[in-house]
Amino acid sequence: MKRALIWLPLGLFGVLFVVIAAGLMRPADTGVHSTLVDKPLPAFELAPMVPGKPGLASSNFGTGKPRLLNVFASWCIPCVAEAPQLMALKARGVPIDAIAIHDKGPAVAAFLRRNGDPYSAIGDDSRSRVQMSLGSSGVPETFLIDGRGRIVRQYIGDIRADQVDQIVRDMAATR
């Protein structure tokens, strides 16, 4: 008993060493992940952002089919970089809705003219209220909402060309 106690500190340090070494091996993940993944979409209702396109409410989701919810802004450079991938997703039949944050109607309309318009509906979230309630920390971010209105997945940052196939597969796997 006494002898075991003497070696206990070394054992504890060994555990500590392994924990730290394991922590060191793993690359740091600096993304801010939403705590709402696997939870229902919070309720919201946003006015239309551009003329001729409806606004967005949480009731648009959970109608039996999965949809993408893209958070973007016309002033956001990575959103420009992401636009071709969103257009590609739309071309493959993925329904995409959007929330534009801290933005003005004419600016968004100009953005859509220049970069293409993959969106079925765009909500005006001028003070980022809905963005924050989604647990999103920046633009662009994209959420995958399933047919029951639950947030299934969060894609942080701009969607890259090599992610398009994966997202289509994710959509297919979601009900």
Binding site: R3, I6, W7, P9, L10, F13, G14, F17, I20, A21, L24, M25
Partner: peptide
């Protein structure tokens, strides 16, 4: 991480060494 690995090795050497010495000699 390379620097981290280096210091971790030092830590293992010094703290582990001292604790092993403690176990072996404190009796």
């Amino acid at each position: 991480p390379r620097r981290g690995a280096f210091i971790l090795a030092l830590l293992g050497l010094y703290i582990g060494g001292a604790l092993a010495l403690f176990g072996a000699r404190i009796g």
